[in-house]
């Protein structure tokens, strides 16, 4: 068989090329071109010389990330928080999506669907204010309750280990509604007739969820997870900064790359050092994903094969995620 070149393909699918062209150009210009600026990570930036004229200074800009052993700690924290947040927020979103689609009371359904999207609109600054009024030692909500019942007050701001839980809970709170929108769309996208037929055939609600609903969610879930993994080294800066603030005692448990960079450079902004942090995050992300890339294609293929068969095996796979 003759191998087709780019131009043959172009001739054959002119329309498809034209359809993809706007997005291609947009991404090329808006995302790829600025990547050339990452070279700043290896330069001592001079304002009058510009990005390309500034002198190189080797790996000096990366030094502060790794001095005093913090580099490892913040990298670990960033990855762990992202994994934890990924699992909880997606899990909750799936559960809520399934529940909401199973609800048939019209107004209840409508109202709850609107209400769970509300946290998405509350900025982290405001969340930060709330967090303080819940957890502070003197007048915080929890401590007031404890005191009323005669218990001993808890100083949350001296308990580093409590904060991963708190942060994770707030993250889930904020994103569950937003993420569930996608899953609700995916679930409702299932052919209504199938569901009906299954119900008439005497399938229990659990069987329907297992064999019809969950499989329909799966491709979306896989996509969502893949995308989140791509951001595994980027912390939601606002969230950490507003919830934890400047509480040094919590840093070992709560510091992520973005907060560390912000704190280190706030008094002495350095463009080269900021670029170094971005570069580090990107490269590490890339390394992690490249490593997983094979699994991904495998995963897809397997998924497609399985979707054609009955759903039983799928359920077993689902539980493994």
């Amino acid at each position: 068989m003759k191998k087709e070149g780019f131009f043959d393909e172009f001739k054959k699918n002119k329309a498809l090329f034209a359809m993809a062209a706007p997005a291609f150009i947009l991404v090329l210009v808006m995302s790829y071109f600025p990547m050339s600026g990452l070279i700043l990570a290896f330069k001592e930036y001079r304002y009058n010389l510009g990005v390309f004229g500034s002198p190189f200074n080797g790996l000096q800009n990366f030094g502060y990330l790794f001095s005093s052993g913090t580099g490892w700690l913040i990298t670990r924290n960033t990855i762990l928080y992202n994994l934890l947040n990924l699992i909880t927020s997606q899990l909750f979103a799936v559960i809520i999506a399934i529940f909401i689609t199973e609800i048939h009371a019209k107004y209840f359904k409508k109202v709850t669907q609107t209400v769970i999207l509300l946290p998405y609109f509350i900025s982290w600054v405001v969340v930060g204010v709330f967090v303080f009024s819940i957890f502070n030692y003197e007048t915080g909500l929890i401590n007031s309750v404890i005191q009323t019942f005669g218990g001993e007050k808890v100083n949350f701001y001296m308990m580093p280990m409590a904060w991963p839980v708190i942060i994770c809970a707030f993250n889930a709170w904020k994103w569950t509604g937003y993420n569930s929108v996608i899953y609700i769309a995916a679930v409702t996208g299932v052919d209504g007739e199938i569901n009906e037929a299954a119900a008439i055939d005497g399938a229990t609600i659990f069987q329907r969820i297992r064999y019809i609903t969950l499989p329909s969610i799966r491709p979306t879930l896989v996509t969502m997870i893949l995308l989140q993994v791509g951001r595994i080294l980027r912390g939601d800066f606002e969230m950490f900064y507003q919830i934890v603030g400047n509480n040094g005692q919590l840093f070992n448990a709560t510091d992520v790359i973005d907060t560390y960079v912000f704190r280190s450079l706030i008094t002495n902004p350095d463009i080269g050092m900021t670029a170094a942090a971005t570069f580090y995050q990107s490269v590490l992300c890339f390394a992690i994903i490249i490593d997983r890339q094979h699994d991904r294609e495998e995963d897809r293929r397997r998924l497609r094969a399985v979707l054609k068969k009955e759903g039983k095996k799928l359920w077993q796979r689902m539980t493994k995620i």
């Binding site: 930060g128 957890f135 502070n136 003197e138 100083n155 001296m158 040094g248």
Partner: peptide, 8 residues
């Protein structure tokens, strides 16, 4: 306050 560093 014992939570001063979180108080904005």
């Amino acid at each position: 306050s014992k939570s001063a560093l979180a108080d904005t």
